[in-house]
C-alpha cells in the first residue's frame, strides 16, 4: 500500500486508491456524523448565548467551578493510579500463564462488563451501606464488638458509603479492565528473544523487567491510563450513587446544565469544552513522555 501514499498521477491510480479505501468509508461517515458534528455543536454552543449571538460570557464564570474541576481531576487521578498499581501486575503475571488459562482469566476480567454499568454501581451501593452486606458481615464476625471492648468506643458500622473513597472505589471497579487489557495485549506481544538476549548479556530478572519489559509495555500503560482517566473525569452517576450527591463532579455539573431547572446548554457546552481541553492537554503530555521513553528503548 506504500505506493498510494504518494500523490496520485493518473486517474487509474486515483480510482484504485478509492477502491482500496472503500472499506474505511462506513466508519468515516459514522465518525463525521457522531463524533465530528457533535464536537462542532459543542463548540458552537459554548461560544453563543441563548439568543444565538456570539459571546464569551459562558467562560467568564467557569472559575466559580474551579473546586469541582479540581475534585474531579484529583479523584480521577487517584483512581487511575490505583488501577495502574492493581492492573499492571495482573497483566504481567497473566502473560506468563498458558494459553488456555490466559483465555479463562481474560474472560473473568471481562465478565463484570457484561452486566449493566448502572446495575454494578447500584450493587456497590448496597454493599457499602451502613446496613449493607460488608458492614453486616463485619458485625457478624464480632469485629465492632472487639474494637469497642478494647478501646471503649461505640462503633456500630464502618462509614464507607457517601464518601470520596467510595467514589474512587466505584471508578476503580468499573474501569480496571480498561487498564489491564491494553497492558496485557502489549506485554504478550513482546518478543521472547529480546528478553533472552538481555538474560544472555547478564541481566537479572529485575533488570530484565525494568530495562526491557516495562519500557516495551509503556504504550499499553499509556493507553490504559487514557482509557481509565478520561471516563473517570467525566463520570456522573458514580458520584451520585456512591458519593451521596453532596459533592458533585464535573459530569454532574454538566448534566445539571442540560437537565436542570434553568436549562443552560451553553454553559454546559462551555464546561464540557474546558474539560475536553484539559483532558487533551493531560493526554498529550502523557504521550510525549511515552514517545521519549520508547525512543530511548529503541536506541
Amino acid at each position: 500500500m506504500n505506493g498510494h501514499k504518494t500523490t496520485s498521477n493518473g486517474n487509474g491510480h486515483f480510482l484504485r486508491g478509492i477502491y482500496h479505501r472503500m472499506p474505511a468509508y462506513p466508519y468515516v461517515i459514522w465518525m463525521a456524523l457522531f463524533v465530528v458534528i457533535p464536537i462542532i455543536l459543542v463548540v458552537v454552543y459554548a461560544f453563543t448565548a441563548s439568543d444565538g449571538k456570539f459571546t464569551l460570557n459562558n467562560f467568564a464564570h467557569i472559575s466559580d467551578y474551579a473546586i469541582v474541576f479540581g475534585r474531579s481531576l484529583l479523584l480521577a487521578l487517584i483512581a487511575t493510579i490505583i488501577c495502574l498499581i492493581l492492573g499492571y501486575p495482573v497483566a504481567y503475571v497473566l502473560s506468563k500463564f498458558g494459553q488456555s488459562t490466559q483465555r479463562i482469566i481474560i474472560m473473568l476480567i471481562m465478565l463484570p462488563m457484561w452486566i449493566n454499568f448502572l446495575l454494578r454501581t447500584y450493587s456497590w451501593m448496597s454493599l457499602l451501606e451502613n446496613t449493607g452486606l460488608i458492614n453486616r458481615f463485619l458485625a457478624a464476625i464480632g469485629l465492632f464488638n472487639l474494637i469497642n471492648n478494647i478501646f471503649g468506643t461505640d462503633i456500630r458500622h464502618l462509614q464507607m458509603i457517601n464518601t470520596q473513597g467510595a467514589v474512587i472505589l466505584g471508578m476503580v471497579y468499573n474501569y480496571l479492565p480498561f487498564m489491564i487489557l491494553p497492558i496485557y495485549s502489549v506485554i504478550v506481544k513482546i518478543d521472547k528473544s529480546v528478553i533472552e538476549a538481555a538474560q544472555d548479556l547478564g541481566a537479572n530478572s529485575s533488570k530484565v523487567f525494568t530495562k526491557v519489559i516495562f519500557p516495551l509495555s509503556l504504550s499499553g500503560v499509556i493507553s490504559g491510563i487514557t482509557m481509565v482517566f478520561v471516563p473517570s473525569v467525566s463520570t456522573f452517576i458514580i458520584s451520585k450513587l456512591l458519593g451521596g450527591g453532596t459533592q458533585i463532579l464535573l459530569g454532574d455539573l454538566i448534566e445539571m446544565q442540560f437537565l436542570g431547572s434553568a436549562y443552560n446548554p451553553h454553559l454546559g457546552a462551555a464546561i464540557s469544552l474546558i474539560m475536553m481541553i484539559i483532558v487533551v492537554i493531560c493526554m498529550s503530555v502523557m504521550n510525549k513522555f511515552g514517545e521519549g521513553e520508547e525512543q530511548t528503548v529503541i536506541l
Partner: peptide
C-alpha cells in the same frame, strides 16, 4: 420567572459543590 430559575440553579450548584 427566568431570573429566579437561574438563581435556583446557581444556589443548587453552590450548595452541592
Amino acid at each position: 420567572p427566568q431570573d429566579i430559575l437561574d438563581l435556583y440553579d446557581e444556589l443548587w450548584i453552590k450548595l452541592k459543590k
